[in-house]
Simulated scan of single mutants.
Amino acid sequence: MPPMILQGNDPHHSPSFSFVHRVRRQLWNMVYVLLFRPSPRPFHAWRAFLLRLFGARLGKGVHVYPRAKVWAPWNLELGDHVGIADGTNLYNMAMISIGRYSVISQGAHLCGGSHDYNSRNFQLYAKPIVLGEHVWVCADAFVTLGVCIADGVVVGARTLVIKSIAQPWTVHAGHPARQIGHRTQHLHEVMP
């Protein structure tokens, strides 16, 4: 459990996150609204600088577009040449790691947090999400906490991923996701 999440609290009367975490998030929100979101689309290096300033670990050539929402940059790791489209939501209460040459398309939601609906206090909890290299999460797909996705996997548009996908270079779609095909790996081997 990430240390920022308070345990055993009453979320109806008290915060779910530590004071330090709430302050850090407010600082990031101000930077996001004032400097990140209004930046011109081609200013990828500027947005990468802002994310790194708040603790993100980013590879070279990363393209995070201005209307992508990153909940906590310090819980974000992107490999080289990753693309994060406008309208994506990286709700990274725990670490989200995305491998080289992967693309997260418009409206996709990677959700690293949830609640224990059987607990007395509706306990908040988080788990990491790990995507391999050359993964494509298509438009409006939803990937839930604790999921790992192997290299080369395509997650189809509006697909719901609730379990890890271990078979590399496969295509998945549906609610919940199921394998519907294979992807040609050799097309991607020319990239360093």
Rank of each mutant, 00 (worst) to 15 (best):
C138H: 12
A108M: 08
D140W: 12
I98N: 00
N89R: 08
M93Y: 10
I129G: 01
L131Y: 10
R67H: 14
V130G: 02
W71N: 06
C138K: 03
D140P: 02
A72W: 13
H134W: 14
G113D: 06
V137P: 00
D140M: 07
F142D: 00
Y91G: 00
V82M: 06
H63I: 06
Y125A: 07
I96Y: 02
V62T: 07
N121H: 15
D86K: 03
S102C: 09
I129W: 04
Y91L: 07
G112T: 02
Y117C: 11
L110S: 02
S119H: 13
V103E: 12
Y65A: 08
S119E: 13
H109G: 05
D116F: 11
N75I: 00
Y125I: 09
E133Y: 08
N92L: 04
R100D: 14
N118K: 15
S102I: 05
A126R: 03
I104D: 01
Y117N: 12
H109T: 07
R67D: 15
R100Q: 14
G113H: 07
W71L: 12
L78D: 04
V64H: 04
G79R: 01
L58K: 04
N89Q: 12
H134Q: 11
A139N: 10
Y117H: 14
G107W: 05
P66L: 10
L58I: 09
H81W: 11
A108T: 04
H115Y: 13
I84D: 02
A72Y: 15
V137M: 07
D116V: 13
A72L: 13
V103Q: 11
H115M: 10
V143L: 08
K60T: 13
N118Y: 15
H115T: 09
Y117F: 14
C138N: 09
S97H: 10
K60D: 14
G59Q: 06
G107H: 02
I98P: 00
E77V: 11
Q106S: 09
E77T: 13
R120W: 12
K60C: 07
G87D: 07
F142W: 10
N92R: 03
N118F: 14
H109Y: 12
A94L: 06
I129R: 02
S97N: 06
A68I: 05
Y101H: 12
H115K: 11
N89T: 08
K60H: 13
W74T: 04
V143Q: 01
A141W: 05
P128D: 10
G99W: 03
N75T: 07
T88S: 07
L76A: 08
D140R: 07
H81P: 00
